[in-house]
Design a protein around this nucleic acid. Structure first.
Lengths: 117, 117
DNA sequence: CAGTATCCCCTCCGATACTG
DNA sequence: CAGTATCGGAGGGGATACTG
């Protein structure tokens, strides 16, 4: 295989697997929601609503459902009065933590790059 | 500082810096475009158009501009006939490579998780 | 508290056509 | 080849009100 073909093959594979990941993390809010669940294991609906600046309850509800379907988060209902609901990362979801941290680190780097120190 | 406050502080910081990163990588296409530039340093407009499945030239043009403004990619015009344009990651943009790789790795993990090996 | 339901705007984005 | 211009539709997403 020529070096050129090698690059092509690597790129195609990279593009496809990155896309697989982005299919789960798509939309405006998913990453932020996951970040909210990264520290401190359990959060309630209204906690996340506060963490993620600007999100509406409608959107939060929708995004949480999608993340649950993709087995990234787990929803558990406690039979208190009124009902309490806990959200947390699943074991699978926790494999995203390094990525979120990496993103946060890059956010810092980028801020320095743009603002200058 | 109590452990609880510590968590709060860490989360706030995490959320903010993750947001800084996502401000640059927002929209449907940025990550895929950067992935296309990760292997093989230079790509032409039409190359990226082919790499990123589904994107239109309109969107590609728009997203490339934003990435250039954020100093993630560099655009260079070669005075051939007709004009050739090369896009490549800047030094700053290259600091995103580990993240893209991480995303790709997670894509593989997730695919296994959902499909089952 | 943890959501649903409804309404509606407006932006994102695709399709098509055109230019240097 | 590397874009820009224009149009139009779909749906993302906000605001508000309501429910168990």
């Amino acid at each position: 295989m020529s070096p050129h073909e090698d690059f092509q093959t690597r790129r195609k594979h990279l593009m496809r697997t990155v896309q697989d990941a982005m299919d789960v993390l798509n939309g405006k809010w998913k990453i932020a929601i996951i970040a909210s669940l990264c520290c401190f294991t359990k959060r309630r609906f209204s906690d996340i609503l506060n963490d993620v600046v600007g999100i509406s309850n409608r959107m939060l509800s929708k995004e949480l459902k999608e993340l649950e379907i993709n087995q990234v988060i787990k929803r558990s209902v406690l039979n208190t009065q009124p009902v309490t609901v806990h959200y947390e990362l699943t074991e699978h979801g926790k494999t995203l933590q390094p990525l979120i941290e990496g993103l946060a680190d890059w956010g810092v780097i980028h801020h320095k790059q743009i603002v200058g120190t």
